[in-house]
Every structure is written in C-alpha cells, then in structure tokens.
C-alpha cells in the first residue's frame, strides 16, 4: 500500500529549519545555505516533474521552458511595468498553465518517443523565443534589475530570509503533492501510467488527468522560475536551455522518479554537484553528468531512493 510516512517529513523539516545555524558555525560549508536556496528552487520543479513522469508516466523534456516562463514573466512585468513581484508570480503561474494547456492538449495524446520529442521541441522553441524577442527579454544579455521580494514591509533581502521563504514553499508543494498521490487523483495518475485502457474503463478521464498533472508541474516550475529571478535579480536565456531540461531529468532519475522523495534527493545532489563538487571538472562536468545518468539508468532504475528496497530484497533471500 502506498502510504508516505509522516516521521521522515517532520525530520526533514527540522533539518531544513536548523541547517543554516549549523552551516553558520562551520566555515567550510558557510555558503551552503545559499546553495540550498537553489536546491529548493530545483526541488519545486522536480516535485512536479516526479508526479508527471514518475507517477503518471508522461515524459517531459521541456520543463525548463516553464521555469523560464515564470522567470521571464516576473522579470518583464516587474522591470518594464513596475508591477508587484507577488502579483507577477501569480501571473507567471497563470501564463505557464495556459501554455501547458495549449501544448499539453495535443502533446499528451502522444505517447513515448513522440511525447518526449514534442516536449523537447517545445522547450527549445521557448528558449529561442527568449533569445530572439530582444525588446522584451533583452535577448542573450537577459534582464537585470529585477527587484527582490518583500511582504508587508518585510524584505527577503538576506540569504537566510530567502532560504526560509523558498523552503516554506517547497514544503507546501511537497505536502500538497503527497496528499494528491495518496488520494483518488493520485491513484488515477498511477493507473494511467500502467494502462490507459484499463484506467478509462474504470471511469478515469485519462486526458483530463494528464493535462491536470502537466499544468500542475508547469505551475511549480513557473513558481521556481519567479523565485530564481527575484533572488538573483538577473536572468538570461542560458539558464533555461535544453541542458537544464536534461539536468532536471538527471535529478529525478538519480533521486528516483517513482517517489516524491527521489525528486528532493536528486535536486539536492545535482545542485551540490554543479555548484560545489564538480568544480574540478569545470565545463567538462557534462561528461560526469552523462556518466551518472547512464550508470543510474543501468544499475539503479529506481534511483537512489530505490536502494533500501534493493537491500531489503537481498535480506529476504
């Protein structure tokens, strides 16, 4: 029976709360809270992606596009129009949902390779738009001067404050997603993964559920994009390229896409790999990513969170 235990979530929440204080006392990891903000932003995307790919079985290789849409909507509306960042964030999510519906309705009729390639093509097209619509997006130079976030006069202007903001949202998304998974909707999504024919014979409106989960993943990615833009105060298209979509794939494959926990583990690891542990390889880190992705696919089809299951299997024998 699929039941996600509460204790690990509470433990994880406590860890997130105390982590900046621990990191603050150890100079070697003093910059980790900053990295954890990025990890949190990636977690938001991978949580949605895990529901979409791991549970519902729908491949998306264009998730960077929704991340970019969130970031660019926030950047353009705050910089060009001076609107409130929170309002822009919501607009970003609405636009991302609308795009997800437009792209999702025809795409999600496709399966397997076709769906993968359609989402891949969509992601690249959006990336090209970011580069070419210079008037709005600043082209390859991007947009700078994006304002930070504040709430009722409270400025999220330090790493610590932003850290708690991001992780609060990650936990909200995490718990929401877990609730969905353990409900009628979650069962419907997992059913679709295995057999669309049997699901619809059970009364599951397959296309509607696919669109819903696609939109949900787009909303989370868009939110992550807005948080990214307001944190760095600067964006350019290269953040939202094809390789980022592949990096997201690496995150959920490495963590394990059949469990939401995998999304979190993967986002963490890849964040620290790319910002900290792979510095030695410089730009050749891409080879390391490729090797990791290949090894995980071959030896750990359920990702790192699948390891306990494998170990249990050994003992049972």
């Amino acid at each position: 029976m699929l039941r996600i235990r509460k204790l690990p979530i509470i433990g994880f929440a406590l860890f997130i709360i105390v982590f900046p204080w621990i990191a603050g006392t150890i100079p070697a990891i003093g910059n980790y809270p900053d990295l954890m903000i990025f990890a949190g932003i990636y977690c938001l995307i991978t949580i949605g992606l895990s529901l979409l790919m791991g549970y519902a079985g729908q491949i998306s290789l264009g998730q960077a596009a929704f991340y970019g849409i969130g970031a660019y909507v926030s950047a353009i509306l705050t910089v060009h129009f001076g609107l409130s960042p929170w309002f822009c964030m919501v607009i970003g999510m609405l636009i991302a949902s609308a795009v997800a519906v437009l792209v999702g309705v025809p795409s999600l009729k496709l399966r397997g390779h076709y769906l993968a390639m359609a989402t891949l093509a969509f992601g690249i097209i959006v990336f090209i738009v970011f580069n070419e619509e210079i008037e709005w997006t600043g082209g390859p130079d991007g947009i700078s001067g994006i304002p930070g976030l504040s709430l009722f006069g409270f400025e999220f202007d330090t790493v610590l404050k932003y850290y708690y903001l991001v992780w609060f949202l990650v936990f909200a998304a995490f718990i929401f997603t877990i609730n969905v998974i353990q409900s009628r909707s979650g069962r419907a999504l997992r059913a679709i993964h295995i057999s669309e024919a049997a699901s619809s014979a059970m009364g599951v409106n397959v296309s509607r559920f696919k669109i819903m989960v696609f939109v949900y993943s787009a909303i989370l990615a868009s939110l992550a994009g807005s948080l990214y833009a307001h944190y760095l105060n600067f964006i350019n298209p290269s953040t939202f390229d094809l390789f980022f979509s592949i990096k997201l794939l690496i995150m959920i494959a490495l963590g394990g896409m059949h469990e939401v926990w995998g999304a979190i583990v993967g986002a963490f690891l890849v964040t620290f790999l790319s910002f900290e542990w792979l510095h030695f390889f410089e730009e050749f880190e891409v080879i390391v990513y490729g090797i990791i992705l290949l090894l995980v696919t071959i030896f750990l089809p359920h990702g790192l969170v699948g390891i306990p299951g494998i170990v249990k299997g050994w003992f049972r024998r």
């Binding site: 079985g57 399966r111 397997g112 390779h113 993968a116 794939l249 992705l293 089809p301």
Partner: peptide, 15 residues
Amino acid sequence: SVLTLIIATIAASII
C-alpha cells in the same frame, strides 16, 4: 522501456 532508453541515449549523447 521507452523512458529508460530515451534517458540512456541522452546520457550517451552528452557524454
């Protein structure tokens, strides 16, 4: 599966 094979060829591609 379609997904694992896609991932494997993507991995090979970036390597």
